[in-house]
């Protein structure tokens, strides 16, 4: 019965894989702004990369799938907040600016 309960991992390989993906995404990111300057979906791509990086760290390094639901929700909420706000600012920037004017 205890076999079904997932234990925190002591394996290095999944951490290494996550780190390599994070490094690759980091090295690609600065060129995206140069290659795709002015392209409409650049913001969408960057928002996606921010989410993927945050998700990788939360899942592989912090192991949120094993964590208490409150911690899991806090992490998932924070990781999702920025990409969503980024897209809202890009596509509804004027409405957001009007709403945020004192």
């Amino acid at each position: 019965m205890n076999d079904s309960i997932k234990q925190p991992s002591s394996a290095i390989a999944p951490l290494s894989t996550a780190w390599l993906i994070l490094v690759a995404l980091t090295l690609i990111a600065p060129f995206l702004g140069l290659w795709l300057h002015g392209v409409g979906w650049l913001q969408l791509l960057v928002a996606g990369i921010v989410w993927v990086k945050g998700w990788l760290i939360a899942r592989q390094f912090i192991e949120i799938e094993l964590a208490h639901p409150f911690i899991r929700r806090v992490m998932q909420g924070f990781i999702l907040f920025t990409p969503v706000m980024l897209l809202l600012t890009v596509f509804l920037g004027n409405h957001f600016a009007r709403w945020a004017t004192l």
Binding site: L34, V46, K53, G54, I57, I62, I79
Partner: peptide
């Protein structure tokens, strides 16, 4: 300590995209 450092890492990844990627 590891959790705090990972959380600080996640925050930096957001800041990186804000200021250095989105031109």
């Amino acid at each position: 300590l590891a959790c705090y450092w990972h959380a600080t890492d996640i925050i930096w990844l957001v800041i990186f995209s804000f200021f250095y990627v989105l031109a």
